[in-house]
């Protein structure tokens, strides 16, 4: 994983799923590991129940925080439909870590179109390493559905071979409010063991 060149991770999901926290924790840990890191986020109107996307790029020297289609090494999707929406951002042989959670979007809510039922088969047809997990169920099992993002982050760190890079528990502890620290640290560990 820590070979030459810039590595690029992308998170995609729906407003409110905790994408900003996950990508900020990742960036902070990479900084502590002595790497150069740049990340990008979109706020504002895009967040009102719409698609939310962040990217984190890291390496010896990073210029661009933003990567275009076909340039992402690891795509982490917090919602199933968003995996299909952004899979073209992955490199061939890239890694797709997809959460099983389904959240209907506006045209689905109004009954204009159905939520696709064949997402898993379609994802499996791409030349990428696909990992489907139910991070929401895991988070609920841990007692707080909101830590789903940190479960996924843990799984991603393990998949990327970054889990031993720094003490991620310390990084997570510094990024969440004290009253949620405990459950987030458990979520991180659970995520790292999930795959």
């Amino acid at each position: 994983m820590m070979a030459e060149g810039t590595k690029r991770v992308m998170f995609a999901g729906v407003g409110g799923q905790g994408i900003l926290l996950a990508s900020r924790v990742l960036a902070e840990g990479l900084l502590r590991a002595g790497l150069d890191v740049k990340s990008t986020e979109v706020h504002g109107m895009a967040q009102r129940g719409g698609s939310v996307v962040t990217q984190v790029c890291f390496g010896e020297r990073v210029y661009s925080p933003l990567a275009g289609p076909g340039a992402i090494d690891i795509l982490v999707t917090l919602e199933k439909l968003e995996a299909l929406r952004y899979v073209h951002f992955l490199k061939r042989s890239g890694t797709l870590l997809a959460n099983m959670r389904e959240i209907p979007s506006l045209p689905v809510l109004t009954g204009a179109v159905p939520y696709p039922r064949d997402i898993e088969e379609r994802l499996a047809s791409f030349p990428v390493s696909l990992y489907l997990i139910d991070a929401d169920r895991e988070a609920e099992r841990l007692g707080n559905p909101r830590v789903m993002n940190v479960v996924l982050l843990g799984a991603m760190l393990r998949l990327a071979g970054l889990d031993g890079l720094v003490d991620w528990k310390e990084v997570v502890a510094g990024a969440v409010r004290p009253q949620y620290r405990e459950v987030n640290l458990i979520a991180l560990e659970a995520g790292m063991r999930l795959l």
Partner: peptide, 10 residues
């Protein structure tokens, strides 16, 4: 991927 439901803000 074509033909998937959009996710506009709401």
């Amino acid at each position: 991927v074509a033909g998937i439901p959009a996710r506009p803000p709401m």
